[in-house]
């Protein structure tokens, strides 16, 4: 009997979080496309990059692109996690209740999201959802090809569309390859301790959005 009650409780909770995820998804679905202007800051130990102005483009179902106007940008592959619309772009998932947590002083519901599709690049997503505002405050996404990424989101004037004013994207650089100086460099090599010091750090990418143009159409050519 008690086993039955536990199962029933778990099932009811799963139903609850599925409803919650679907509500969040419905909120995200209000945005068909957007163009956002922002400032990109790269904090990766082995990349020296200046702060730069960028434009990001999103179009349903899964098009996302970050462009630095007439410049060069370096982002970790798997930039998919920068946009929650891409994480939740399918109905084919299982949502599991993983309790509650406080993120940036906000009480959130922790939801583990497992895609049903074996071929999906995302293996597991952990979402920290503010149930009151239906906003994802934080997401930890594990992908097949590009490891695990953490995304912290801070909302402001575009919260009604679930679009953040600031996105902080973190990833572990331990398994990342370092460049080999292929611009035909004759530099002396750095010692292995220095290399490990550079690698054993968390990489961070921060985008501060200043404005969004929402649902005004985005040309497909942008994503090519």
């Amino acid at each position: 009997m008690s086993v039955f009650i536990v199962h029933l409780y778990a099932f009811a909770n799963a139903q609850d979080v599925t409803v919650l995820v679907n509500k969040v998804k419905a909120k995200l679905d209000k945005v068909n496309d957007y163009t956002a202007a922002g400032v990109l800051k790269t904090d990766v130990a082995f990349i020296k990059a200046p702060v730069s102005n960028v434009l990001t483009y999103f179009k349903k179902p899964d098009h996302f692109r970050l462009v630095k106007k007439s410049g060069i940008s370096v982002l970790p592959k798997g930039g998919i996690s920068v946009n929650m619309g891409l994480v939740l772009n399918t109905d084919n998932f299982i949502a599991l209740d993983a309790g509650e947590s406080i993120i940036n002083k906000v009480k959130t519901k922790v939801v583990k999201l497992l895609p049903n599709d074996e071929n999906d690049n995302i293996v597991l997503s952990t979402l920290y959802i503010d149930a009151a505002t239906l906003l994802i405050m934080k997401a930890i996404t594990t992908t097949k090809d590009n490891g695990t990424f953490e995304v912290d989101m801070f909302y402001g004037k575009y919260a009604a569309y679930a679009l953040p004013d600031k996105v902080l994207f973190s990833f572990n650089t331990k398994n990342y390859k370092l460049p080999k100086g292929l611009t035909l460099d004759f530099d002396e090599g750095t010692n292995p301790d220095e290399i490990n010091k550079l690698k054993n750090k968390k990489g961070k990418i921060e985008i501060d959005y200043s404005s969004y143009i929402i649902n005004k159409g985005v040309d497909d050519a942008v994503f090519k």
Binding site: K48, K68, G71, D185, D187, E188
Partner: peptide, 20 residues
Amino acid sequence: GKSDLFLMRSEYIVIIRKDD
């Protein structure tokens, strides 16, 4: 044409803005 300079040094990457 002009753009930022992307250099791969021995163990790190340097990106220098085109106006710099």
